[in-house]
Computed example of a mutant assay.
Amino acid sequence: MPKSFPLSMRRQVCARLRAGEPVAQIAEETGISPATLFRWKAQVLVDAGVREGIPSVEADELASAKKRIAALEAELKLTRDACELFNAQAVVSPKGGSGSSKG
Rank of each mutant, 00 (worst) to 15 (best):
P2K: 05
K3Y: 14
K3S: 14
S4D: 09
S4N: 08
P6I: 02
M9W: 11
R11S: 04
R11T: 02
L17R: 01
R18I: 02
A19C: 01
A19L: 09
G20D: 02
E28Y: 11
E29T: 06
E29W: 04
G31A: 07
A35V: 12
T36K: 06
T36A: 13
T36Y: 09
L37I: 03
F38A: 09
K41N: 02
K41W: 00
K41P: 01
L45K: 04
V46N: 03
V46P: 00
V46H: 03
D47I: 01
R51A: 06
I54D: 02
P55L: 05
P55N: 03
E58K: 12
A59S: 15
A59E: 09
D60P: 02
E61G: 14
L62G: 05
A65R: 14
A65H: 09
K67M: 05
R68M: 12
L72I: 04
A74K: 15
L78T: 07
T79G: 09
R80T: 12
D81L: 04
L85P: 00
F86D: 04
N87C: 13
N87Q: 07
Q89V: 14
Q89Y: 05
A90T: 06
V92W: 04
S93V: 11
K95V: 10
S100C: 07
S101M: 11
